[in-house]
């Protein structure tokens, strides 16, 4: 076990720090007033509907675009696996590794070759002839071979079958277990992230809605079910839905005094959905402290 994986203990230094980030495409803002930090060694999930600004945030983090406002700071080197895992189709797998070696100062070619051999991906095969899962593995291997401090993955699991999703996640998690690596990965399927991520960032319509430790967030929220009219005083309502005379609410804070409420801890998906349905709500460290 590596020593850098403490969950509790003092707050870890940030691996990624975003301050007042604003990105504009022509006249529309893709990202506005976005400030967050992801602590070292965490696996952060970046979730939000399509067009929320996830890719924009990631591109800003890896320097693919220059923000109009604010800035992004990465502690150390970042590696990026873009959406659809772009690779050179006419290259063989081995040539992709040469490409990585020639375009990077840090490069662990032996580890990369071992990984691909372990996955049974033939080095002589053309990239264009790989299956979706193999392609994803090659892209992830290239990114990991740079020995990055921050690994940014844009929709790494999209278009993969369940087995390939599992395999890709295993590869990434094994690397996290091995050394101090921070991961930022985006998905619009929350259930993909349930067991793998310990940090949550929710973007919605170009604005940051949630940023914090997943356990603390889940501990700080409750799902209340009760009759319409029951008092939820003392809590902060994130969102509510009514069916007939029954109300279901996602709230922050301690359970309310009204005994008619049934309270339970939300699941990750419930928490995310609750926020996405109420774009005006936010749970940010800067506003009220995570898990108030």
């Amino acid at each position: 076990m590596s020593p850098g994986l403490e969950v509790t203990g003092p707050r870890r230094a940030p691996a990624l720090e975003v301050t007042g980030l604003g990105v504009r495409y022509r006249r529309t803002w893709a990202l506005r007033d976005c400030s967050l930090s992801v602590p070292k060694g965490s696996v952060a999930a970046l979730v939000g509907p399509n067009g929320a600004g996830k890719t924009t945030l990631m591109h800003a983090a890896v320097g693919l675009l220059r923000p109009a406002l604010g800035g992004v700071r990465v502690a150390g080197e970042a590696a990026f696996v873009a959406q659809d895992k772009p690779l050179y189709e006419s290259f063989t797998v081995a040539e992709m590794l040469v490409f990585g070696r020639r375009t990077n100062t840090r490069w662990d070619g032996a580890a990369a070759a071992d990984r691909l051999a372990g996955l049974g991906i033939p080095p002589g095969r053309k990239v264009g002839a790989l299956s979706g899962g193999q392609r994803a593995q090659v892209a992830v291997t290239l990114a990991l071979a740079c020995r990055p401090d921050l690994l940014v993955l844009d929709e790494p699991l999209a278009n993969l079958d369940p087995l390939a999703r599992h395999d890709v996640m295993r590869s990434i998690m094994a690397e996290v277990a091995e050394r101090e690596l921070t991961v930022l990965l985006s998905s619009h399927v929350v259930s993909d992230l349930e067991e793998t991520c310990d940090w949550l960032v929710v973007l919605n319509g170009g604005r940051l809605q949630v940023s914090g430790d997943i356990e603390e967030l889940l501990d700080g929220h409750l799902v209340l079910t009760g009759p319409d009219g029951a008092s939820a005083a003392g809590t902060r309502v994130v969102g509510a839905s009514r069916t007939g005379r029954q109300v279901t609410m996602l709230v922050r804070g301690a359970p309310p005094l009204d005994p008619r409420w049934q309270a339970r801890r939300p699941g990750l998906e419930e928490l995310v959905m609750g926020y996405l349905r109420s774009p005006e709500s936010a749970a940010l460290p800067g506003l009220a402290g995570v898990g108030a």
């Binding site: 693919l64 873009a82 772009p86």
Partner: peptide, 18 residues
């Protein structure tokens, strides 16, 4: 067109050198 600029320009070689 193929999106590979997101691969080529995120390695440690800076874009201007590429």
């Amino acid at each position: 067109e193929r999106g590979t600029h997101r691969l080529a320009w995120t390695q440690s070689v800076p874009v201007w050198r590429w």
